[in-house]
Design a protein around this nucleic acid. Sequence first.
DNA 1: CAGTGGTCTAGACCACTCT
DNA 2: GAGTGGTCTAGACCACTGG
Lengths: 243, 243
Amino acid sequence: MSRWLSTGNNVRVVPAIPRYYQAKARLLDLLGELPGNTPFPPERELSDVFGMSRTTIRKAMNELVLEGRLIRGTGRQGTTVAPPQHVHRLSLDAVVQDLATREQVAVRITGDVLGVESVLVRGDEPIGVRSTYLRASRFPGFAARYDRTTPLRKFLSDAYEIRFGELHPWCTTALATPRVAGLLDVRPATPVLSIAWLGHDFRGVPVERSWVVLRGDRAHLTMHLPRADHAGRFEGSAQFHAS
Amino acid sequence: MSRWLSTGNNVRVVPAIPRYYQAKARLLDLLGELPGNTPFPPERELSDVFGMSRTTIRKAMNELVLEGRLIRGTGRQGTTVAPPQHVHRLSLDAVVQDLATREQVAVRITGDVLGVESVLVRGDEPIGVRSTYLRASRFPGFAARYDRTTPLRKFLSDAYEIRFGELHPWCTTALATPRVAGLLDVRPATPVLSIAWLGHDFRGVPVERSWVVLRGDRAHLTMHLPRADHAGRFEGSAQFHAS
DNA sequence: CAGTGGTCTAGACCACTCT
DNA sequence: GAGTGGTCTAGACCACTGG
């Protein structure tokens, strides 16, 4: 296993500095001088000016797209400079309790699995997808009874008298599947933030299996940790499992 | 702004199904039949067998690398099938309290900024980078006094009588910078999980600015939410800020 | 219609590693 | 030395968008 050695700021793998890296640096300079929402030079022009092939330019530009600095358009629209981004701060609470603004709430039933999927929206932008899976037999008549606007957990508590227990959500990065990418208006394989949890009722019976995918360039997940004591452990009701 | 329409399972942008996507599907089938750590067919052979150019094959393979299914080696090593991955579950607690296994703890001082950087290690693999920045004038003699093994927050509490207050860490995805990529043994621009927080003492004075980067394919961040009451709000000491 | 980005090809050279 | 992955080139065709 060979490490990707870094000498100073540059990565040495095959060429001392890949050309697409030089291109990216120059494009970043260019980006710094252009205000948001202005058109970016077309790939063929940059290819010509930089004396590099379009493929090389594209490799550099694609990283800038993934980093949210450039926005690609189709056809005559071309590439534009991404405006200063408003990064939405979603609290873990809002995500879990289904308090974020939603649209397109869909309910599907396959066998005994009840799927509830919604798109999280902030400021007219889709920033996340929320999927919850329930046992259909545990929630009779759900599809007809659910109004699709009440936060899901609240509805389950009220309509089916579920008392939820504590949660241990976990969080990681993933690549957007084609389906999720379509919902989030990003390219397939765009990095996303993935938050999942298994909800139990107060007796410890699994009830809810949920999964939220957030656009990493549009949303941060905010959490909360109460005050720690002198020993470096957190006080109060919040117990974190070791390792 | 054009959405990436999805018809069924396939993305329609330019070609109905891009060839590299077909290649990826076939490679996934192939992956399913091969045990971990076995050599994967070389790009040129796949290019030949699939009747696609090496560039197209590489595009498909690169996504599989990002997803942690393939491992690339240099020279005659070639590409190998990634073994079933052990995904390390790091608790938010361990990350914040600096309880994860560390190596290469470095202390740097530039002006009044004291930087403490360490590599998080699990099972001989680097899985994260932890950086903390402190005001040097607040912690006189830190570089000499810190033994580089005590969890950082515990040391600050003990040696400088800091009493930390509550925390509001935030989490998002990012692309690995060349420097971070070198430390984590991944390619530059690999998606990583980024967790940051601003630590205050109990009087509300900012003390600690920290940032942790985790390899998304090797580590999950686990969190904890206490039981919610019937109104859908969480009880106890854990207050989550709205939206 | 012209120009854009998305995809794809068939080559090429390089550094590296194993035999 | 042979074969690998990493990079790069100079083309090509396509779907789409704007004037």
